[in-house]
Amino acid sequence: MSDALVQVSDVHKVYTRGAERVDVLKGLELEVGRGEFLALMGPSGSGKTTLLNLIGGLDKPTSGRVAVAGRDLTRASPRELAHWRARHVGFVFQFYNLLPVLTAARNIELPLLLTGLSRAERQKHVAAALELVGLADRAGHYPMQLSGGQEQRVGIARAIVNDPTLLLCDEPTGDLDRQTAGEILDLIAELNRRYEKTVIMVTHDPLAAERARRVLHMDKGMLVEAQAA
């Protein structure tokens, strides 16, 4: 039995739009080891985000198997998947997806609301996450009061506040300038290196992909090339 953290076996994903059938993933096979930093590259529509959604338990494959840490996600109920995501996965989005009505601290606290932690304990975790992303002095700021890079740091803090095993990043630097993107990638790389988070990052940006230890290319729903970074 493989010791990979993520195992994707013969996964197909088909969407139907009216009478049209779209094969997004076509028998995809993938293994991601524990502590790995993997970059998924490919053109728009190649199935990168769909694959990321399947690995994060946000969606289910049409056929095939997706397992993380030995747990078969394809057999879990929506409720079980929600609980699993809360404990084991952190998501980082291209457009940050912060709730505009909440402060940075309240946004980061969201996943902790699902735990049995007391308010004081939650605040302690939030403070630690803010410290880690270098925004300890922005706790009370609303997203619209933050720069893009700061918003993404808050997004990363929200993703790691529960100390997940797996960090899934969907174009995390896609909306940032080059310098800020570099800082965000440094942060993600540090989370992988220092805190041993397994990172899977979807990106169009070759410079971003360079930070990963492994890069995979996708096209038309299949892995077409693999190379070690």
């Binding site: 929600a82 809360a86 996943p111 699902l114």
Partner: peptide, 10 residues
């Protein structure tokens, strides 16, 4: 969608 992503159940 974000709330559900971070683990809020339906």
């Amino acid at each position: 969608g974000v709330l559900k992503t971070v683990g809020f159940t339906d």
